[in-house]
Design a protein around this nucleic acid. Structure first.
Lengths: 350, 350
DNA sequence: AGCTAATTTTGGATCGTTCCAAACCGGTAA
DNA sequence: TTACCGGTTTGGAACGATCCAAAATTAGCT
């Protein structure tokens, strides 16, 4: 009568079956809501399930059915708010579909990525969502994963040639289009001398963003100066450091499309140090829409990739792939949205 | 000879055994590095494992051994950088111990918390780390979890009476001591009229932080004014909104201990709007040391709970509990560290 | 060779579930 | 009486690993 809390060993189908004089198979049918069982037996069994506090053992069921209800989520950096949001989106969508998330973090190390993939695979996930570590190679990922689970690549491309039969799905951000939007926005505001600031040339996202910028400039019939493209690490500090390079040559730019928000915030610092007021004397845009972007001084015009929605989308893509294991691989490019704030002012009147 | 990628169904112990003319049991011994097997057979089996690209099926092993190699991590809000860091720390420590993280997010909803716990339990985790949703009740958590896995509560207390036999471990932050440190720091700087700003009175962490503040004020022989305690939602926006209340009465404070960093950053905005320069005309401290704290204008004096380390610690605690299921439950209080930055200036000379 | 001791190997039972073919049961038609 | 019919129920063999007692092999010593 009192609330019954199980104490000893785990309750199994056999215990329930014995408890209400019915066979194991029948209890199993009840659990899965089969229409075969008689109403009365069902009620009796359900009562007993409750009474004994039965918990379904999905591992055993999955073993027998040769199925899986987990998806591995392997991230390069969970501490990064962008990926944390993404993970939250993935988990939410997976949970809604009755799946469970197996988490793994690689900390940007390809070696740990290998270890993590190996360990997670032993738990037999139905699929894998992977945001690769920097410099992770396609061949290594293939060796670890093989054909054991469908893989969705998120956010980054893998290094090295992709073996022709590895039909991996991809979900990438529209870096190129995003950067073009930002550049066109600055052009509309009246800027003509626009720089592309920050990022490493060997990162695929940086190349794509620069391509979008170049496309917009070409589209407006504008030439660019070599010193309008500054390479630096995608951190605030390094960006602040490299600010003077922007003004080293003739034709100093009046605006900059930055590789990402961190770089843009760093550039703001650097501008302040030169006595330039970002958002007044110099315009700039970021990429990612991190939390600080909205609260900067001034608030930063940037591109939002809606990481939470991307997470949901990634989950959907993997789940769809489970339905259609043989379908052709899909390369999805997620749109990004321009968020206009005060940092993208018109050029100062000269 | 060419790199062999498995194509058809999964490779099992039987396949390996058949493949090199030895019994299933022997292969199992090899896998687990038993000293019983002969060197030569071991080599032969290992070669075959490699050749067929065998992947250990941990679910099957766990079923037979009645063990588990996963830990459930249930968080109220993964999008919050504090918890994201925490999760990264948990995952890192678990991975190092050969465990895998089962992730679940509740989005601050007790109902979803119930669902998530139920779903994760079906996968038979060896233990659970739970940062409860707001207003989650002890009785409900107990009903969901029972004795099926040891539970570690992180960061928050549960509502309602804790049934006497639920020996849950706890890992909490030293909110009270932290707030006292911040208050004493402001006192040392010369402040006498110090407010406690933000947070909801019904949250346990807010109560604890306020207690630390009150303790320090009492310790310095200072009385506090009623309007020095302002309640507001722990968000930037609401904090900015409530700023005027601080200056509504006589004896306006010259400094404020804020409930957390978000509130402190909001208060900075509110101060700016009143023409007060935070860090010059008014001192303030935060709590959490989020990324923005170091980069605010001015940088924010705050308390760091080192969320990543706390994650590692939480993992350790659960793993220790697995070793000693019967040991008395542990209530751990993690220290917090005062990070002094520019926002905690001395009071203006009057 | 003969016998014991030490070293390796192995067949079956088992974990908790699902699948499947067969059995059961009360009723109706032949 | 037998055959046959839905509608229900069931025993036993899987799934892929581990455990255990017993068997097979090898070594050591008269």
């Amino acid at each position: 009568m009192s609330s019954h809390i199980p104490i000893g060993r785990k309750v199994t189908l056999n215990d329930i079956a014995a408890g209400c004089g019915v066979s194991r198979a029948t209890v199993s049918l009840v659990l899965r809501g089969s229409p075969l069982v008689n109403k009365l037996t069902r009620a009796r069994v359900e009562e007993e399930l409750r009474r004994q506090g039965y918990v379904y053992n999905r591992a055993a069921a999955n073993l027998r059915r040769r199925t899986s209800t987990s998806i591995a989520l392997v991230l390069n950096d969970l501490a990064n708010p962008f990926f944390a949001e993404f993970a939250a989106g993935v988990d939410e969508a997976l949970a809604a579909a009755g799946f469970v998330t197996l988490l793994g973090c690689t900390g940007e190390s390809p070696a740990r990525e290998q270890a993590v993939l190996g360990s997670l695979l032993e738990h037999g996930p139905a699929g894998i969502i992977l945001s690769p570590a920097e410099h992770s190679r396609a061949a290594d990922v293939l060796a670890a994963v093989g054909r054991r689970a469908p893989l969705l690549l998120f956010n980054r491309e893998l290094g090295g040639a992709l073996p022709e039969f590895a039909h991996w799905d991809q979900l990438m951000l529209d870096n190129q289009h995003g950067a073009r939007l930002a550049t066109e926005h600055l052009l509309e505001r009246g800027h003509r001398r626009i720089a592309f600031f920050g990022g490493h040339h060997d990162s695929s996202s940086c190349r794509q963003r620069h391509a979008g910028y170049a496309e917009a400039m070409r589209g407006a019939g504008l030439r660019t100066e070599p010193h309008w493209r500054i390479e630096c690490a995608p951190t605030r500090l390094d960006a602040a450091h490299h600010t003077p390079a922007l003004f080293a040559g003739a034709f100093a730019p009046t605006a900059a499309v930055c590789y990402n928000d961190a770089v843009a915030l760093g550039l703001m610092l650097g501008l302040n140090q030169r006595g330039l007021r970002p958002g007044h004397d110099f315009a700039l845009t970021g990429f990612d829409d991190i939390a600080e972007a909205a609260l900067g001084m001034p608030p930063l015009t940037t591109l939002s990739a809606a990481p939470r929605e991307r997470g949901g989308q990634a989950a959907e893509l993997v789940l769809e792939r489970l339905q259609q294991p043989q379908a052709a691989s899909r390369q999805t490019v997620a749109p990004v949205r321009l968020i206009v704030r005060e940092s993208s002012c018109p050029p100062p009147i000269t």
